[in-house]
């Protein structure tokens, strides 16, 4: 049985390494990456709920873990992934309905998603952390 030699390292046609990142491709892969991150965050949420319901000492330990710098970074990151995936998801639903395919629209809505998710993340995280308490 003749197997094709696998050792040839032929160059692929123009590929990721030599492409300048474009907002379209970067936002597209970000949708997937944030989706994957959100799934793992959901598993964390499930574990957190389980300890809240049934294992008070574990719950206290988890709450302590979430208060550390690493815990806060994870929560902030998850919040960003959440808002990004939510807003960009609306964009995807609009495309599925056949709307917003013109390139200027794609750029405009793309930047709106980036700005909107940063804004909502800071708004939500800041509210939970009590950042604006002194201003109200």
């Amino acid at each position: 049985m003749a197997l094709a030699p696998k050792t040839h390292k032929r160059p692929l046609s123009p590929h990721l390494q030599i492409y300048r990142p474009q907002i379209t491709s970067v936002l597209s892969i970000s949708h997937r990456l944030t989706g994957i991150a959100l799934y793992f965050g959901l598993l964390l949420l499930a574990a957190w709920l389980l300890t809240l319901a049934a294992y008070p000492p574990c719950f206290a330990w988890m709450q302590g873990l979430l208060k550390t710098l690493l815990g806060q970074v994870v929560l902030f990151g998850w919040a960003f992934c959440f808002f990004y995936h939510l807003l960009n998801g609306v964009r995807h639903l609009a495309w599925d309905a056949g709307a917003g395919f013109a390139l200027p629209d794609v750029y405009r809505t793309g930047w709106a998603v980036v700005g909107g998710s940063v804004f909502l993340t800071i708004l939500a995280y800041g509210t939970a952390a009590g950042w604006w308490v002194n201003f109200i």
Binding site: L42, L43, A46, A47, L49, L50, L52, A53, A54
Partner: peptide, 13 residues
């Protein structure tokens, strides 16, 4: 597994 854990936790709470 996560679904079962969540359902159990919410039911208990």
């Amino acid at each position: 597994g996560a679904m079962a854990a969540v359902v159990y936790a919410i039911a208990k709470i």
